[in-house]
Computed example of a mutant assay.
Amino acid sequence: MREIKAATIRQKGGPFQVEKLSLDEPRSDEVRVQVVAAGMCHTDMVARDQLYEVPLPIVLGHEGSGVVEQIGRGVKKVAVGDHVVLTYMWCGHCKPCLRGDLTYCQNFYALNFGGTREDGSTATRDANGPIHDHFFGQSSFGTFALVHERNVIKVPKNAPLELLGPLGCGIQTGAGAVMNALKVSPGSSFAVFGGGAVGLSAVMAARVAGAAIIITADVVPSRLALARELGATHTINSRETDPVQAVREITGGGADFTLESSGRPAVLRQAIDALAIRGTCGIVGAPALGTEANFDVNGVMTTGKRIIGIIEGDSKPDLFIPALVELFTQGRFPFDKLVKFYTLEQINQAAEDSEKGVTIKPIILLKEGHQYEV
């Protein structure tokens, strides 16, 4: 076993506690990764606060990036020394997986929120016994992570590894919602409701996709200013202006595509109401389990609107994450403008800053000798 340092959650609501733990050797189909950095996502707080129930104690973190340290004897996808991004987990054998719908894996919740491998085992322990892990197949709020070969994605060594972790979840969710799920088309109109990391990633993706009108609605002026910098043609402060009316005025009747990223039912209603005839609204915001929302049934039916749920941007990570890295390298997808770095000991501050909107995308640095300023 390898000794690691990791942030655990031992009670509902936290705090994160930095502790020394032990991590198993990789099995035949597993990869042990020295984590360089891990993004912090809203879903980490959702799990911490038990809005989605996860077993405790647990090591969270699901936007890891790092270097392959050791591989199981059956691993062919990566080699020791490869630079990798860690992403969500899927089973590979259920009907949705077999038809290529990886993000809708029949076992998605168990594999990503269950706190164990698929067989119910864990790889992490403290002096008293097992600690739940494998959060999103990785639990990357630690100096090392043990992952399946399936959800480790090789990336070029010339890309800045400390930055890349958020591509594994939040960034690919927003970008993939635009590119893969909604299929925003050149010349179309797109409006995102919520200007956090997911929403702003959607803005950048809509620009890459060639949307002519790109609208961001949020209540934080600094986020709206950044949205314009990243490609939004229009911004709406929803505290000052009715966003539905504003979108309709800007687009001349409604947006072709909208995306709800706030997780608030009232905002979802706005995103649906702001659609044009035959428009499509995507849902990526994650409220507590059991949350219900309402919409005008006739308003949807008689205009042919579509409402679709989107998980992880409908991404096939082995293809999509390297594509996002290439777009970043070309300067066409500058997601580095969303981030701020923290040490592992500052993880609770990172969570607080994220929840207050002070930081859009915190990244926790886990390997000493990093080149980024904390």
Rank of each mutant, 00 (worst) to 15 (best):
156 P>C: 07
275 L>K: 02
5 K>M: 06
140 S>M: 05
45 M>L: 12
299 G>N: 11
232 A>Q: 05
199 G>T: 12
60 L>R: 09
42 H>L: 02
145 A>N: 01
8 T>N: 07
282 G>Q: 10
195 G>D: 09
246 A>K: 12
191 A>W: 07
262 S>H: 02
247 V>M: 02
142 G>F: 01
26 P>D: 03
281 C>S: 10
53 E>D: 11
289 L>H: 11
208 V>N: 06
192 V>Q: 05
272 I>M: 07
14 G>M: 11
286 A>Y: 09
184 V>Y: 00
109 Y>P: 04
41 C>F: 01
259 L>N: 05
291 T>S: 13
257 F>P: 11
302 T>G: 00
226 L>C: 04
58 I>E: 04
299 G>P: 09
241 T>E: 13
234 H>I: 13
373 E>R: 15
175 A>R: 00
105 C>K: 00
350 A>L: 03
138 Q>P: 12
301 M>H: 14
122 T>Y: 06
275 L>D: 01
222 S>I: 08
17 Q>G: 03
369 G>A: 07
146 L>I: 10
108 F>C: 04
290 G>R: 09
324 L>G: 10
341 F>Q: 13
225 A>M: 08
336 D>F: 02
103 T>D: 08
153 I>V: 15
214 I>W: 00
4 I>W: 09
7 A>E: 10
96 P>T: 10
42 H>C: 03
217 A>T: 12
149 E>S: 15
58 I>H: 10
273 D>R: 01
317 P>R: 03
203 V>Q: 06
206 A>H: 10
281 C>R: 01
180 N>V: 00
330 Q>G: 06
335 F>A: 07
268 L>W: 10
154 K>P: 11
306 R>M: 11
217 A>G: 06
365 L>H: 04
151 N>L: 04
212 A>S: 15
344 L>R: 01
118 E>R: 12
185 S>N: 09
352 E>M: 12
250 I>C: 07
30 E>I: 03
132 H>V: 13
325 V>C: 13
365 L>G: 02
239 R>M: 14
135 F>P: 00
209 A>Y: 00
113 F>G: 02
111 L>F: 12
221 P>R: 08
194 G>Q: 11
138 Q>E: 14
334 P>T: 13
175 A>K: 01
140 S>I: 07
183 K>N: 09
252 G>K: 14
46 V>N: 07
47 A>D: 06
151 N>M: 06
350 A>R: 02
85 V>C: 10
197 A>K: 07
76 K>S: 15
334 P>L: 10
30 E>V: 06
106 Q>K: 09
55 P>E: 12
171 I>F: 14
2 R>K: 13
199 G>W: 12
155 V>G: 12
46 V>F: 10
365 L>F: 01
189 S>N: 05
288 A>D: 13
58 I>T: 10
299 G>T: 11
130 P>I: 12
255 A>Y: 01
261 S>G: 09
143 T>F: 00
213 I>F: 02
276 A>Q: 04
126 D>Q: 12
92 G>E: 11
295 F>H: 03
128 N>Q: 15
